[in-house]
Amino acid sequence: MDQFLQQLLNGLFQGSIYALIALGYTMVYGVLRFINFAHGDVFMLGAFTALGLHKLMGPTLASLPWPVSLLIVLLVSMTLCAALGIIIERLAYRPLRDRPRLNVLITAIGVSLFIEYSAQLLFGATQRPFPDLIPRTAIANAGGLTISVAQVIVLVTTLALLAGLRIVVMKTKMGLAMRALSLNPTASTLMGVNNSVVISFTFGLGSALAAAGGILYASLYPSIEPFMGIQPGLKAFVAAVLGGIGNIPGAALGGLIIGVTETLVKGYGQELGIPSGYSEGVAFVLLILILVFKPSGILGRVEREKV
C-alpha cells in the first residue's frame, strides 16, 4: 500500500509538470485554434536559459539562500522565454493568421525543428548536467514515503502558477479579452479588443509557463539536451486534449491523469504483462482512446461547424 501511495505521489509530481506545459497548449489553442508544436521546445529553452544563467552568475546565486536564487532563475528564464514566444508568434504565425489551419500546423512543425536544431548547433547534442537549483535532499516521511525537496517545490510552484493563471484569466481585463477572443475573434475586435496584443500576451504567458515547466523538469531529471522537449511536449499536448482543449482546469487534470497513469504502468505494468518501457506510449494510447470515445475531452465542449 505504501508503495502504491509512493507511486501515486511520483505520478502527481510528474503530472504537475505535464500540466504546466499543457496550459500553454490549451491557451494558445483556445485563442488561435491551432497546435503550437514549438511549445515543447520553449520548455527545453527554459531549462537551457536556467543553465546559462547559472553559468553566468553561479557564485552570486550560490551566495543567496536557494529559494531566492531559484526564484531569480525562474523569473529571468520565464521572462526571456515569454519574449521568445512573442517573437515566434510575430514572425512565424502572425503572417498566417487567416490561412488554413494546416498551413499554420506545418509552420509550427518548422518552428519546432528550427528551435531544436539551432539549440543543437549552439549547445551541442550531448546531455548536460543541470545544476541543483533545489537541494536534492529527501524528506523521509513517517509513513515510509520518500519525497524530495525538489518534488515538493515542483508541486508547490505548479499550484502557485496555476492559481496565478486562473486569476489572470478570470479576474483581469486581459483575461477577459482572452476569453472574448476565444469565443469570437471578430466580435472581440468590434468590442475594442486589440486581438494582436491579446495573442502576443497569450503566447508570452504560455511560453513563460513552459519555461517554468522546463526548469522544474530539469530539477527532477537533472540532465538536459536540445531534444528534451519533444516527449514532454507531446505528452502535455495529449494532456490538453484529454482535459478538453481550450479548457484550463481540463489541461491541469489531463496532465495529472497522464503523469499518474504513466507512473503506474511503469511501476505495476510488469505484473500485468506490460513491459515498463511501454509507459512511454501510454499517453498516446490514452489520446487515441479519448479521441475515439469523447473527442471533446473530459471537460471540453463540442464544437459544431455551421453549415
Partner: peptide, 18 residues
C-alpha cells in the same frame, strides 16, 4: 486536421515504443 496529425504522430511513437 490537426488532431489527426497528432494521432498519427502518436501512432508513430506507439510503433516505435512497441
Amino acid at each position: 486536421g490537426d488532431y489527426l496529425a497528432i494521432v498519427t504522430l502518436g501512432f508513430n511513437e506507439i510503433v516505435r515504443v512497441i
